[in-house]
Design a protein around this nucleic acid. Sequence first.
DNA 1: CGCGACGTTGATTTGCCTCAACGATTGTGG
DNA 2: CCACAATCGTTGAGGCAAATCAACGTCGCG
Lengths: 199, 199
Amino acid sequence: MLPTLHEELIASNISRYSSLSTAEMAYFMTLLETRSIRKKEYLLRAGEVCRYDYFITKGCVKVCFTDEKENERIMKFATENSWVIDLESFLNNKPSSFYIQAIEDTEYFRLSQSSYRLLYKVVPQFEKFSIEHWRNGFIALHQRIMQNLSMSAEERYQLFKNKYPGLEQRIPQKLVASYLGVTPEFMGKLRGKYTAQLS
Amino acid sequence: MLPTLHEELIASNISRYSSLSTAEMAYFMTLLETRSIRKKEYLLRAGEVCRYDYFITKGCVKVCFTDEKENERIMKFATENSWVIDLESFLNNKPSSFYIQAIEDTEYFRLSQSSYRLLYKVVPQFEKFSIEHWRNGFIALHQRIMQNLSMSAEERYQLFKNKYPGLEQRIPQKLVASYLGVTPEFMGKLRGKYTAQLS
DNA sequence: CGCGACGTTGATTTGCCTCAACGATTGTGG
DNA sequence: CCACAATCGTTGAGGCAAATCAACGTCGCG
């Protein structure tokens, strides 16, 4: 059976961190579950335990929490070819304080906690992959948070555009504002400064 | 041999998370190294690998990093009866981006990476303790960072006073300011609002 | 078509910073 | 032990980044 485009995508993603044999990769594929959801539906709700690691193949989701003023705060986006998980919840079977919601109609693979356990046993290389990929996620989160503490909104906006090229055109501005931690109005003014320069 | 006061302190701290037998606790004590440093000296410098987990028995230290504008940013304080470590550095043998410096003359125990390994082998219960205590540290860090994103300086000041009761009277105000992420001047104005109300 | 979500713009306000000046306290070398 | 320097806390004036509030235009969608 020929691999689908989506399978090729995740295979090449995995290969960034570890090299699995053809047989190992094939076994890995059998554990993936293919799913899709529509815009505004949830991968994970606040209070649930995160029982899967998700790999987005098409579309886009946001990872958010609700702060004490009932504002939605966006921690990260995940688009095609990226992983998304609440690691703390997944590892400790602890209710998540985040929710993960689709911004566009989205297709993805998911890999359950028990599949992880199987992979650790059957494919030793896989543990190396998972540790590395989680470590990167952890460090990225840390960096982002520190940037929020010490950079201006305008600087953070530049970082956003580098980190998620093209995403700005795909999603509502108010989501970008929430990611940056500013009001939608101020976001518009920031944007205005750049489009004005182009004319 | 009778236990010292400091040994009683750390024993009762450990007992919060796990119950060791008398013999196990005694073995644990043999692995502790007693140390002390004077004000302004370092437990850990930025760029070094954090090779110990520290338990403060007297005095106070600060955990800081230097941001891109060369400002000192204080991540946390540790006073009597609290643990301090750069977990990422300790676990991955990776140079730390933080430094840990004494604010007062400080006495502490330290527990090396190799002592940890020994304890895991000899005292199975100990792994439970360490995981739990690291998890708490990780969560506390996360919460603090989120609070910084969504609360005003005044609200954060209240949290600081709850989290470190009495510490405000012991250390320079400018350190509190750095912890809160505001200038020392603004810190003074915040403080003024409360002392004014008392008269 | 009409409604609701979204984006934009302007006026005003607020939170916090910067800079400068000044006492008070601490620490240190002579 | 004193004298002087350094550090620290406070206060005030002024400025800037970003929030708030209100009004208005524009889509997309039922």
